[in-house]
C-alpha cells in the first residue's frame, strides 16, 4: 500500500468515525443533531454536483433545480399520495433525476460559460413553476402539511419522525450508501473516462470516446444524487422551500464544493461543514448576512481557490 492510498483510507476512516459519533460530541460543542443532518444533506448535494464539476470538468450553475425538485417530489408524495418515507424519497429522486436527464439532452453540446448560463436558466424554470403554481406547491410560502413517517420494517419500526438521533442515523445511512455508490462510479472505467474528458476533452474525443454521451450521463447521475439529497432536505425540515430552487441555492452548492476542495472526493462534505457553520453563526450575529456570505465567496475565490482539502493536496490545478 503506497502513501497516497494510505492517506486516502485514513481520511475516509476519520470522516466515518466523526460522522458516526456526532450525537456524542456535537452537543458538547453547543450544536444540535439537526445541524449535522443539514451538513450531510448539503454535503451530499455538493458531492453529487462535484461528480460533474470536479470529476467531469463541466460546470453547472443550476443544480438547485434538481435539489429542489427532489424536495418537492418527496413532499408532494408524502402529502398527496401516501405517507411512506422510502417511497417518497424514491419519488423525489426520480422527479429531480428525470428532469435533469431531459434538460441534459439540451445541454450537452454547450460548453463553458454557455453551459452554465443555460443551466441557470433551466433552474429558474423550475423555480417559477414552484412559485406560480400556488394551489399545488404552496407558491411563495413553500410546501407544508407533510411530515416524515416512521419506517416500518414489519418486525420492528424505526421512529425517524420523533427521535432526532434515529433520524440522524437514517441520514447517515442514506448518505453512506450514496457516497459508496458515487465512489464506485468514479472508480469504474466509466468514471476514469470522465476524468479523461476533464483533463483533455479533445484528446479524449480523438480516442473515440463519445464525449456528449458521457457528459450527458454524468449530468444525469449527478442530478439523481442531488435530487436524493433534496428529498432528504424535505424530510429534515418537513417543508419544501421555493428558494431552495432558486439560483442562489445553486450558487451555494457551487460555493460549498469550491470551499471544501473540488478535486477531493470528500472536499464538498468539508465545505458543507464550513458553510453550515458560517450560515448558522453569521445569521445569528447580524442581519447583513448577505454581505458576509458574499465576502466569503470573494475571498475564497481570490485567496483560497483550491479549497480546504485542496490545500493539503499537491499539484492540484485551479
Amino acid at each position: 500500500m503506497n502513501g497516497l492510498l494510505r492517506h486516502k483510507y485514513a481520511t475516509t476512516a476519520i470522516i466515518w468515525v466523526l460522522l458516526l459519533t456526532v450525537p456524542l460530541w456535537l452537543p458538547l460543542l453547543g450544536g444540535y443533531t439537526a445541524l449535522a443532518g443539514r451538513v450531510l444533506v448539503f454535503g451530499l448535494a455538493a458531492m453529487s454536483f462535484n461528480m460533474l464539476l470536479g470529476f467531469t470538468g463541466v460546470m453547472s450553475f443550476g443544480h438547485a433545480a434538481y435539489f429542489g425538485l427532489g424536495a418537492y417530489g418527496c413532499g408532494l408524495f408524502l402529502k398527496y399520495v401516501t405517507p411512506s418515507t422510502p417511497l417518497a424519497m424514491i419519488a423525489g429522486t426520480l422527479l429531480g433525476g428525470i428532469a435533469g436527464t431531459l434538460f441534459g439532452l439540451l445541454l450537452v453540446r454547450r460548453r463553458g460559460v454557455y453551459f452554465a448560463m443555460v443551466t441557470i436558466a433551466f433552474g429558474q424554470v423550475c423555480f417559477y413553476i414552484a412559485y406560480k403554481w400556488d394551489d399545488f406547491t404552496g407558491g411563495y410560502d413553500g410546501l407544508r402539511g407533510f411530515a416524515r413517517a416512521p419506517i416500518d420494517f414489519g418486525a420492528f419500526k424505526i421512529d425517524i419522525a420523533n427521535n432526532s438521533t434515529a433520524f440522524y442515523f437514517f441520514i447517515v445511512l442514506v448518505f453512506g450508501l450514496a457516497a459508496a455508490a458515487q465512489a464506485f462510479i468514479l472508480r469504474s472505467p466509466f468514471g476514469r473516462t470522465l476524468l479523461a474528458i476533464r483533463e483533455n476533452e479533445r484528446r479524449a474525443r480523438f480516442l473515440g470516446i463519445p464525449i456528449e454521451k458521457h457528459i450527458w450521463l454524468s449530468f444525469s447521475i449527478s442530478c439523481f444524487f442531488t435530487a436524493l439529497a433534496g428529498s432528504l432536505y424535505a424530510l429534515l425540515n418537513n417543508f419544501a422551500d421555493p428558494l431552495g430552487l432558486n439560483y442562489i441555492m445553486s450558487g451555494n452548492i457551487v460555493m460549498i464544493t469550491v470551499m471544501g476542495g473540488m478535486r477531493a472526493f470528500w472536499g464538498p462534505l468539508v465545505g458543507a461543514v464550513l458553510f453550515v457553520m458560517l450560515q448558522d453563526y453569521v445569521s445569528s450575529m447580524t442581519t447583513n448576512w448577505m454581505f458576509f456570505v458574499g465576502l466569503t465567496f470573494v475571498c475564497v475565490v481570490l485567496f483560497f481557490p483550491r479549497g480546504l482539502m485542496g490545500m493539503f493536496q499537491k499539484g492540484a490545478k485551479t
Partner: peptide
C-alpha cells in the same frame, strides 16, 4: 476555470 468568475461576481452581487 469559469466557475471562479461566476462565484466571484455572484458573491460581489451579494455584497
Amino acid at each position: 476555470n469559469h466557475i471562479y468568475s461566476l462565484l466571484l461576481t455572484f458573491g460581489l452581487g451579494f455584497i
